[in-house]
C-alpha cells in the first residue's frame, strides 16, 4: 500500500513539474499551422525553423501529405493557417469553398526520369521507356505527379505501359530505389532528395508538364500566416527552395 502511494506521489509530482516547466519556460506561445504538399517536407521544415528563429514564441506545426488529401481536410474544417499545394487544381478545391486568400505561385517543379544508379536497362531518354523489356513505374493519374507524367508523355507523343501506377511520388521513387523497376517519372526535387540512391535524367518534354505550386493564407488565419507566406516568397525562401531542385516561378 505504501509502495503504491509513493508511486502515485512520484507520478503526480512529475506531472506537476512538467506543467510548471511548460508554463514558465514558454510564455504565451502562438502556434501557426501549415498544410503543405509532401514534396515540400524538407524545404518547409527548414523554413519553419527559420521562421521560429525570427519570431520567438512562435511554433510552426506542419501537416505534410498528398495535396488532394490536405485540400479535403481543409474543406472539412481542419484548422490550418496556410496551405501550400503541389497543383493549382488542389488549391482550387479550397478556393472554391471560399476558404483561401490570395494565391501566389511560389515555385515550379519539373519531372525527370529516375533510374537506379547502375541503370540496368540503359535508359537514356523518354523513348527508351516504350521498350516492353523496361519496367516503368508512374504515379497514378489522380495525383499531381501522375497528371504531369500524362502531359509530358502526351507532349512527346509517346505511349508507355507501366507495370504500376503508384499512389504518390515517394512510393514511385521507392520502387526505383529498391531496383524493382528500371525507370520512373518523378520530380527533380525527389531525385535530389534521394541523395544518390537514384540518378536523374532530364528530358526536354518535361517543360510542357511543369507543376505550379500555389500558396495561400486561409480563412480566419492567424496574423502570422501572411508573414510565413512572405518568408516563402522572399529571396531567402527562394534560396532554400531552389537548392532543393525547385525552380523559381
Amino acid at each position: 500500500m505504501l509502495k503504491r502511494l509513493s508511486l502515485v506521489a512520484a507520478i503526480t509530482s512529475v506531472f506537476v513539474l512538467a506543467a510548471c516547466g511548460s508554463s514558465s519556460a514558454v510564455p504565451a506561445e502562438t502556434e501557426l499551422t501549415v498544410f503543405a504538399a509532401a514534396s515540400l517536407t524538407g524545404t518547409f521544415t527548414e523554413l519553419g525553423k527559420q521562421f521560429e528563429a525570427a519570431h520567438p514564441g512562435t511554433k510552426v506545426t506542419f501537416n505534410f501529405g498528398s495535396s488532394a488529401t490536405l485540400a479535403q481536410q481543409i474543406t472539412q474544417g481542419a484548422p490550418a493557417d496556410v496551405f501550400a499545394a503541389a497543383s493549382p487544381a488542389t488549391m482550387k478545391t479550397v478556393a472554391d469553398a471560399g476558404l483561401a486568400g490570395t494565391q501566389t505561385v511560389f515555385v515550379k517543379n519539373k519531372l525527370e526520369i529516375a533510374v537506379p544508379p547502375d541503370n540496368p536497362a540503359k535508359v537514356e531518354n523518354l523513348k527508351d521507356l516504350t521498350d516492353p523489356k523496361v519496367k516503368v513505374a508512374l504515379c497514378a493519374a489522380q495525383v499531381p505527379c501522375g497528371a504531369a507524367a500524362v502531359r509530358a508523355l502526351g507532349a512527346a507523343g509517346i505511349e508507355v505501359t507501366p507495370v504500376t501506377l503508384e499512389q504518390d511520388v515517394k512510393a514511385t521513387l521507392t520502387k526505383v530505389e529498391l531496383g524493382e523497376v528500371d525507370a520512373a517519372l518523378v520530380y527533380r526535387t525527389d531525385v535530389i532528395a534521394s541523395a544518390g540512391k537514384v540518378s536523374g535524367i532530364p528530358f526536354p518534354e518535361a517543360d510542357q508538364a511543369v507543376n505550379d505550386y500555389p500558396i495561400a493564407t486561409l480563412k480566419d488565419a492567424s496574423p502570422l500566416a501572411q508573414q510565413f507566406v512572405d518568408l516563402v516568397l522572399s529571396p531567402q525562401g527562394e534560396d532554400v527552395l531552389t537548392k532543393a531542385g525547385f525552380e523559381a516561378p
Binding site: A140, T164, Q167
Partner: peptide
Amino acid sequence: GNFPGRTQTMPLAVYLAL
C-alpha cells in the same frame, strides 16, 4: 503495385478514387 486488371484490388481503387 497498382495496375488496373492486374494488381488493382478494390481497396486500392478506393484509395485512388479518394
